[in-house]
Amino acid sequence: MTAARLAGAAILMCASLFLSLRLTAAKRKRERELYEICDLIRYVRNNIDSFLTPLGSIFSKFSSPALDSCGFVEALENGGLSSAAVSEGISLLSNERRLLLAFSEKLGLGYRDEEIRLCDYYYKEFSEIARREREENDKKSKMYKYLPPLAALSLIIIFI
């Protein structure tokens, strides 16, 4: 009986640690993705500003670790920014997806100066979202780390 209780407590603790790690990783992944979307916008802007490179070529050359692993870059290469914005792997909220879609709808329709202004505007928007996300993550990181194990521990104390 004691062995079963100990096993149950161990499982509970492991599950809570796993949950804690997943939660922290998910929040950090989202933060990285947001910053890499900012990098993408800056990359598009610089390519337009310096070389007037067509969007197809810009997207096909873009690479970034977090956006690569979630399938965003592949969707970007195959279907452009509009299909990347709705790709399932990326952890964007619905308002952020709408913002990215609005950017994709306007991108490529204007001359260089208009495009640069457009990129600057959306870069600022996404930078702000990413900054808020980082601040929130920094504030809550301890909570994400310790809350699930503590919850598990209290459950163990109460029931076992």
Binding site: T53, L55, G108, L109, G110, E115
Partner: peptide, 13 residues
């Protein structure tokens, strides 16, 4: 127009 420019009007300005 978009198709002709490859969705990149600026590159044909």
């Amino acid at each position: 127009l978009r198709a002709l420019c490859g969705n990149s009007l600026y590159s044909h300005s």
